[in-house]
Amino acid sequence: MNTQKITFKNVAWDNAGILHFPADFNQNKKYPTIISMHPIGSCKEQTAGNVYGKALAEAGFVVLVFDASFQGESGGTPRYIENPYQRTDDVRYAIDYLETLSYVDAEKIGILGVCGGGAYSLNIAMTERRIKAVVSITGVNFGRLLRDGFAGGSPMEVLGQIASQRSSEAKGDDLLTINMLPESVEVGKAAGIDDIDVLEATDYYKTSRGQAIGGATSAVYSRLGIGMGWDAFYLAETLLTQPILVVVGDKPGGFGAYRDGYEITRRAASQKKELLVIKGFSHYDLYDQPEPVKQALEKVVPFFKENL
């Protein structure tokens, strides 16, 4: 048994997850356990699960990868909400669930996140002290990303449009669900998009390379306002004290993982903190490309073994 599908209780719905087990798993033993958080617009079957979750299980950890609330196979309506407060709160319920499992060492729980999941992991560790160590893989501060124009304009322009859309929906109009990526790389280029992150995201999510049923790169537009006022790194100087490892590629793109990686490493109060910059690779190379993933894991696995 290398994997097991599970569910755990959240506020008023269930989250769906997959447990990854070491090859020699023995349910009578206790294991250090890692939660692996998927990127924005992703799901448990993609990079957080089939790359990092799988590799960490092979290294001897129990790993829980789960779909965010309102996304993938998890509950919550309406669908396709990206709410940073709920995304981070999901982790508390995941840890509650893990603590009911006899083979989980509750004193040795770590967290890893990819892209938006990386910044979410750093953020939740500030107030969830059951987390003992954090790894961010090409982490992106979702609030900063929205404010920098990813939502389609300046913050005040977008917030005004969101307010108008939400008012219309309150009066009975259909929800406006937007796709955060072009339909293909070719369509993106034809529209004048040349940012490496957007084009490589499209290659990952819209082709057989990484496409998965639960990985809908969509969002309910009227619910993006809450993300505009969110900052993954707020109070990091005071509350982020666990050991952290931040991994980024040195080919920067519009999503800003490179700059976010330097910022959080500088600001974190952690006594043990390291920024690993992998030369010659981009944000999406760290999702699934063998060489940069190998370099990341050569640091990630010993980091968790030392700190859990």
Rank of each mutant, 00 (worst) to 15 (best):
M1T: 14
T3Y: 05
T3R: 10
Q4T: 14
I6R: 10
A12H: 05
W13Q: 13
W13G: 01
W13I: 11
L19D: 07
P22R: 11
F25C: 07
N26P: 11
Q27M: 04
K29F: 05
K30Y: 03
T33R: 06
T33Y: 12
I34N: 04
S36M: 02
S36H: 01
M37I: 13
M37Q: 12
P39Q: 09
I40A: 01
S42D: 12
G49H: 01
N50G: 03
V62M: 11
L64I: 14
A68H: 15
E73T: 05
G75L: 05
T77L: 06
P78T: 13
R79Y: 07
R79Q: 09
E82S: 14
P84E: 02
Q86T: 15
R87E: 14
R92K: 15
Y93H: 15
A94I: 01
D96T: 12
E99Q: 15
T100N: 03
V104A: 01
A106C: 00
G110N: 14
I111C: 09
I111F: 06
L112D: 05
L112Q: 13
V114R: 01
C115P: 01
C115N: 02
I124W: 00
A125G: 13
V135Y: 06
I137V: 14
R144C: 00
R144W: 10
R147H: 07
D148I: 00
D148K: 12
D148N: 15
A151S: 14
G152V: 04
S154H: 05
P155I: 10
V158F: 11
V158W: 06
Q161T: 02
S168Q: 13
S168D: 04
A170N: 14
D173R: 13
L175E: 10
L175K: 11
T177C: 14
M180V: 07
M180D: 03
L181I: 12
E186G: 02
V187I: 15
A191H: 13
D195L: 06
D195T: 06
I196D: 07
I196N: 10
I196M: 08
V198I: 15
Y205D: 08
T207Y: 14
T207H: 09
T207G: 00
S208I: 15
R209H: 04
G210S: 09
G210C: 09
G215W: 08
A216L: 15
A216V: 14
A216Y: 12
Y221D: 07
I226S: 09
M228D: 02
G229M: 11
W230P: 00
D231G: 10
F233E: 07
T238Q: 10
L239A: 04
T241G: 05
T241N: 10
P243I: 04
P243S: 01
L245W: 05
V246A: 06
V247L: 03
V248Q: 04
V248C: 08
G249V: 03
P252C: 06
F255S: 12
F255R: 11
G256K: 03
A257E: 13
R259C: 01
Y262K: 14
E263G: 00
R266E: 13
R266F: 09
A269S: 06
A269F: 00
S270K: 00
E274G: 00
L275R: 01
V277N: 05
I278T: 06
F281V: 06
H283K: 08
Y284H: 11
D285R: 03
D285S: 12
D288G: 02
P290A: 15
P292E: 04
V293K: 04
Q295C: 03
Q295R: 08
L297M: 15
K299L: 04
K299F: 06
F303H: 07
N307R: 12
